[in-house]
């Protein structure tokens, strides 16, 4: 069968020690037997490694940060699209999702398909809304409360005990043992990611994760549970292994069917010593470890592209248990003119 030619734009090319999911997503799509792909990378910084990985990314364009306003980003995308005729756009950063979800129709009007959660799904799974989410969908969640001032920490003393987790709205989380640490982490995270800061009950147990894809009609296209085996000082998985746990899969199916989740997602769960699962976070996109799912038999990035293009995507029924990923760092040697092109012309 002849492969379908598609041009896919993807962000998250920062394949660094705290990697974005762009490169693993692209690897999955490149593995596809159904698509003949051209990959257009969208980079926010000149040194995002993916821009220089020409075997994976055909062409890279610099784009303005979403914080500069969605108009600037959309204008830039329109210019890029005139050159590239993008079929599918896969944003891979939490911080850009709001803009792209909002721009779904505008993008469609210029021929670019996305497959993202709805605004309602995106909003209700926010860390700050987790207690309501748990209540609405009957999922165990830790006590969480968004705060906007250091002085709010003191006001929480009747609701939560130390240690608790201090979390940023998009990224970063630290365990605070006392008020001094909580204040320090509040300031550190808010300076980087803004407000609110989420104070979350610390659940003792093992962190386990699920990468999944929902079709938007309540059906789970694929789901693979994983346990991090090696965690960096930034809390990122450097190694992980697929698990055989039907309860994790049941929980994933439950969340996807109840929320009618559309797009990729990562569930962050804590398994307690009593074998109970607490949902601590839903990331509304495929995670950086998604290539483990591909390696275990579920090419979720490829399935996401199919869904975006309105092509049939059959649910995966199996995956290989005990499959490992081990991340590694690698020094690419690049010529100055490449760096110069991306820095000055905004494309490479």
């Amino acid at each position: 069968m002849e492969k379908i030619k598609v041009t896919i734009a993807a962000s998250g090319l920062n394949n660094i020690d705290s990697p974005g999911p762009g490169i693993p997503v692209i690897r999955g799509i490149r593995d596809s037997k159904d698509f003949d792909v051209r990959i257009v990378g969208l980079a926010y910084e000149n040194l995002e490694p993916g821009a220089y990985m020409h075997e994976l990314v055909d062409k890279t364009y610099k784009v303005p940060y979403p914080s500069e306003g969605s108009d600037a980003l959309m204008e830039r995308l329109k210019v890029i699209n005139e050159q590239e005729h993008i079929d599918v756009l896969i944003p891979n950063f939490d911080s850009e999702l709001y803009t792209f979800i909002k721009a779904e129709n505008t993008l469609r009007d210029i021929g670019i398909q996305t497959f993202l959660p709805t605004m309602k799904q995106f909003e209700e799974r926010h860390k700050s809304n987790l207690p309501e989410f748990g209540k609405k969908y009957q999922v165990k969640v830790p006590f969480s409360k968004p705060i906007s001032s250091v002085s709010d920490i003191e006001k929480l003393k009747d609701d939560i005990e130390y240690p608790f987790v201090v979390k940023g709205k998009f990224y970063d989380a630290y365990i605070a043992q006392n008020k001094e640490q909580a204040s320090m982490y509040f300031n550190r995270i808010s300076a980087k990611w803004g407000l609110p800061i989420i104070i979350q009950e610390f659940i003792k147990g093992t962190e386990v994760n699920v990468v999944a894809l929902g079709d938007g009609n309540g059906r789970t296209i694929g789901a693979v549970p994983m346990r991090k085996q090696y965690i960096t000082d930034k809390g990122k998985a450097w190694g992980g292994i697929t698990l055989d746990d039907s309860r994790m899969l049941d929980l994933t199916h439950h969340i996807i069917s109840q929320t009618r989740w559309r797009g990729g997602m990562e569930l962050e769960l804590i398994r307690t010593d009593k074998n109970e699962f607490y949902l601590i976070e839903i990331n509304p996109r495929l995670p950086a470890w998604v290539y483990l799912a591909v390696g275990a038999g579920q090419n979720l990035p490829e399935a996401l592209v199919k869904l975006a293009l309105g092509l049939p995507a059959n649910p995966f029924t199996n995956y290989e248990t005990g499959k490992l990923f081990i991340r590694y760092s690698y020094d690419m040697i690049c010529n100055l003119d490449e760096f110069m092109k991306l820095s000055t012309k905004g494309e490479l």
Binding site: T206, R227, I241, L243
Partner: peptide, 8 residues
Amino acid sequence: FLFDPSTG
């Protein structure tokens, strides 16, 4: 080598 697939 002993492997527990439910916990990893």
